[in-house]
Nucleic acid binder design. Sequence first.
RNA 1: GGCCCCAUCGUCUAGUGGUCUAGGACGUCGGCCUCUCACGCCGAAAACAGGGGUUCGAGUCCCCUUGGGGUCACCA
Length: 501
Amino acid sequence: MSDVRVRFPPSPTGYLHIGGARTALLNWLYARKHGGSLILRIEDTDAKRSTRESIEGILDGLSWLGLDWDEGPYFQTEFEQEHRRAAEQLLADGHAYRCFCSRDELDARREAAMAARGNVGYDGTCRGLSPEEIDEKMKQGLPFVVRFKVPRREGAVVYEDRVLGPIERRYDDIEDFVIVRSNAKPLYLLCNVVDDIRDRISHVIRGQDHMTNTTRQLLLYDALGAKPPVFAHMPLTLDLQKRKISKRSHGEIVSVQFYRERGFLPWALCNFLVLLGWNPGTDQEIFSRDELIEAFTLERISKVNSVFNYRKGDPKFFTDPKAISINAHYLRTMPVEELAGPVKAHLAKENLWDDAYDGARRDWFLHTLDLIRDRFHTINDFAGAGRAYFSDEYTIEARPLKKNILKHPDLKTWLPKLADRFAGLAVFDRQTTEETTRGLAAELDIKPGILINGMRTVLTGQLAGPGMFDILETLGRERVVRRLQNVEHLYHTDNTGTEPR
RNA sequence: GGCCCCAUCGUCUAGUGGUCUAGGACGUCGGCCUCUCACGCCGAAAACAGGGGUUCGAGUCCCCUUGGGGUCACCA
């Protein structure tokens, strides 16, 4: 076991979103790469907003993604005593002080500073209070918060960021920040450091939005006499308007759950997410788990924020096209036996699953998946565009209906005739059905395409699909004949799509 | 507004002073294949934010401008 210890500390205020998943993924990769440990810690000190459902949702999301952790989940609230002790120690050591300024006063001063275009930090009013003054205010029962006493000296807090390089921030630019609320509850900045020290965290890999926290927390490590971890700030994920993606403003599209429901393969999502702000320095974009763990380094994390290329209401792409493309790639190239699991789950959910697919019809099932997956993008397509392979109740889509059926009224007699010939075939396979189809087309003196595309529409409801004679063989004679003999009704409905039979 | 970070095709990105007439991927467009297609194959359009330096030479180093983002809570 190496001494690499990283953590993923979500606050349970909602579902797991892709930004959080990406943070978890990079931490997980780093831990796995170095044979270290990933600690899961639920930062639930904001009791008002933390919920049980949220915690479960986050754990569930991580599990689905395949990101396993080695310790935890720990709950921050369970260590409240430690946090308080640390605060008391800081107070005792002179690294912190009680501040009796009221919130209203603070707000007023901040606004004034903002208006004067100045620094809006705390002005240090209570920093110089004498012990007597403090006693006096304590006796009066005045509420107070505890503030960290930032060193007032020349110079800056400096550290070496593993992705951004040297970072520094002058002491003068850091205000005396609050570490304990007036209700005596310690705040994130402190809790987080105390927990990281206790959990012996070696590397903190988090978003750039934490950079101002890092410089302040470094001061805390120092005051607490602890060695700080290595910091690596990853770029943020923005939307097309360059806004930080968030649950509040982007909704379900940024939730991991959404991708699960829309038929994403978990690893495909991971593969997409890792590419948002990281690359291996080669042209490789598709990685197996082992390949990614091997290739991953903090140094190759980009400094630049990336844009999640998602257009609301896009008719063709329900999320970033590259994400869909990566998912489709996995869908089409993974061993079909591995694909069978997710597809089974999906078909079962849609009431299209037949236990025979696990038994007598296993080969048929796998063969069918292999045949139709080439044009699919998500698992959901199997019960969508691929529905006709698993059920007799499927929709004939409007476009092919109009183009391939309604345009040729004679198909209402041609297709049943073709069905009759199929029924009489000694052998029903790709070769014999093709000969039969082309033979009939020749007799009728029409282009084979009319028969073929008409069949495609009736048999699958789709405009596009695999080679027609592969479809016939897969569907099997019984279903093909039955469906082809029943086309009359297609001409009696409006052309917005209809159900056969 | 203060402070911090960042800046290559529409998007994700390669590029660590000369091999950059800037490479790849997704998307877009065109062609081929063909019974169809959001399959496959081939091809095209598409970027170094601007200005100063440094250097024999700059996408690559420095400075300024501009632009973008983050953060400034008794949230995490």
